[in-house]
Simulated assay, not measured.
Amino acid sequence: MRKTHLLILFTLFNLLTISATTWAQEVPTPELFLTPIFQVNYGDATADKPQSKSWTINQEQWLIVADEDGPKLWKKEGQRWTSQREVNRAWENLPSKADVLNKGDEVHVVLVEACDLNVVKMVYSPGTKQYKHQWNAILPVPAECHSIETATLTQDSNNSYWVAADMNEKIMVWYSADGEDWSEPFPLADDINPDDISLIVSLEDQISVIWSNQDTQSINERIHYDEDAPQVWSELRVVQQGDSNADDHLNATVFENGEMVLVTKNSVDQIGSPQFVLRIRDRLGEWTNIPFENLTAEHSPSRPIINHVESGQIFEIHAVKNRVTNRYHISVNEVKKKNGGWEFKELVQLKTEINGKNGDATSSKASFKPEEAKLIFFSDELGNVYSFDIDHIIKK
């Protein structure tokens, strides 16, 4: 009799354990429906890859988005976002797509559209808690230019400024000692696909330019050491080549120890195969490539970005199209090193009420500070702009 009771108890325990495990595996990712923080007259206002459009100063959050008559600066004041009219008047009719570099009280922004490249400078006043527009510099663009999709900006350890952009199936860089007077562009690559783009990143005593080349199925890099003349760059370094691993989706974050994490999309586009690659560059310039995020019959992931908290937490964010309903959401994921590999855990799905596209996630070029808001942004094709603070999830 006792053995029978023990057998029953053991069976019940196993059933409960199996049920609990099954339940834990089937718990869906939390969903959150967002309302716009504001609207502009420009669809997909947070585009374009791989630009960073937000920053924090003195616990204040700032954002630049595109609009029909030029870029617009916005500030979060309490629970509202307010358009900064004085700066925005100074930016009327400038190129709309912005990449932001903030350092102390100064902000430099590269603005791009068609074959037009500008860099503007703003200075923050702690007294008024406002930015004041200082100047606008026009970068020299050759007359034969027929297309520039996007551009990014950085600063090296000598406080010199650099812009990288795709132009006419080439990867071009511009240089400035002060951010206002710019060199003629010079090419780092002249064989890219018309759909390819680049990203420029500041590392320890060097500048890295990374780009996709879908014709050669490769992700590539060239390095400029800060001690060298501006036109002196390393030979081509191939991060990875073959297996359709290149597409025009690039975004990076640099750790405090000098390592860089790059997230890219590939062109595999096969059900059950990873669409993204996490690429880790150590301080010696060696790369490790980790594929992740499968394409499924229902979900198509795209346009990944990545950022981290100075304490070490890594977050990857991307858009997802439901291939059945044609609805979109933004997937927020935590990336952890675990058991010698990498774990990608979806924390929340951000949704909106519109039926059209939601995407073009963006964040800050700088890492998140533990004590500050960790804002990400995205937009829809109707000009609505949305915001989410990752702290709402990680501090629960």
Rank of each mutant, 00 (worst) to 15 (best):
I207N: 01
R327G: 02
S52G: 00
I290W: 02
F377I: 04
E86S: 09
K103V: 02
G43W: 12
T128G: 05
G127E: 14
G70S: 08
D226I: 01
F344Q: 03
G78L: 02
N159K: 15
N58R: 05
A229Q: 12
K337G: 08
K365A: 11
S83E: 15
N307G: 04
V232S: 13
Q217T: 11
A143Q: 14
T264D: 03
T29M: 00
K76F: 06
W81L: 10
L111A: 08
V65L: 11
L9G: 05
S379W: 05
L34A: 08
G341I: 00
R323Y: 01
V112R: 03
N266T: 09
T296C: 02
T362C: 06
V263I: 15
H329K: 11
W55P: 03
D116Y: 01
L236W: 03
A177F: 07
V263L: 02
P230C: 04
L63I: 09
P95L: 01
E221G: 00
E286F: 13
P274T: 03
H318Q: 12
S52V: 03
I37T: 13
Q130V: 02
Q155T: 11
V238F: 06
P30C: 06
R281M: 15
T150V: 10
L250C: 10
R2Q: 09
E180R: 15
G312H: 11
D116R: 13
P301F: 07
Q217A: 12
P50E: 07
R80Y: 06
L262Q: 07
V163L: 06
V87M: 03
T288I: 08
P301A: 09
K72I: 02
L284N: 14
V232E: 09
A252D: 05
N136S: 12
V112W: 11
L236Y: 03
E60G: 01
E149W: 11
L6D: 04
A114R: 12
G127N: 12
D48V: 03
V232N: 11
D178W: 06
V87P: 11
I8K: 01
E346C: 00
Q217F: 10
I210W: 05
N58L: 05
F33Y: 13
N322A: 04
N159S: 08
Y225R: 08
N294Y: 00
L15P: 00
P291V: 13
